[in-house]
Amino acid sequence: MTQALINGLVLGANYALMALGLTLIFALMGVLNFAHGQLYVLGGFVTYYVFTVMGLPFVVAVLASIVVLAIVGFLFDALFFRRVQQRSAREESSMLLAAGLALLLESLILLGFGEKQRGVALSVSGVYQIFDAYVPASRVVVFVVAMLAVVLFILFMRHTKPGRVLRAIAQDRDVTALQGVNIALYSGVGFAIGSALAGLAGSLLVTIFAVNSGMGTAISIKAFIMVMLGGAGIVSGAIVGAFVLGMVEALGYAFLPGSVTYLVIFVGLILFLVIRPNGIMGKPWG
């Protein structure tokens, strides 16, 4: 039981990174980023490549994932989203674009890293005992780094000028342009941050779950579940949704037969959304 709870916490912290990235992009662009899971997968592969193939330190691999994904996110916006949204105000256009980009990125990952499943064995010596559970130090590292990133992200959004500008754009684009903000540039920055968070999650979790080029959509769906649970566009909602999903998933895997867990999660989500359609934190972005 303790073991499952601890796994849930580790998962939850990393899921929070994904959910925060997704919810940031949603709040800025008004679009659910269907390619979010592929960004996660790319983050995992970059870390695998830098750490396992090139043999560089894990820290370098994580940083490489963050940087690569930030660049990919910025380009996604500059090359695709910005152009499509200039030409068409319809939400469907952006959604179709996001779905298309998911496929594109998936193919590129397949081309670049192959079809093999890849994991990273992070060997940090030491095992912690927490009550009756044994937690390898590598998981503690993964948990702590993820939590640190969550806290940094929140501090950035709350207390820095660029964070304030991103929140302003989420609330009112035109009015924010009228304050002198270059919206296109900041959308790119927001997309870069959101993607980097997904990449960081992939980079950390690849030490626990191997990645393969085809798993992106399943990850995206998980991220959507978290955001729907918590409430779309809300920071606290993303975090709550992520930990709820992480916990339920860890408990499910511990006590239910394999594939039943997600069946239970989906049924539970549908029932929950019937009762609270705006999610746990159900308010707009703050």
Partner: peptide
């Protein structure tokens, strides 16, 4: 900006 404080609203005005 309804979800920002009054101060944050005013600081947005001074953005540039």
């Amino acid at each position: 900006y309804p979800l920002m404080t009054v101060k944050e609203n005013l600081l947005m005005g001074a953005y540039k």
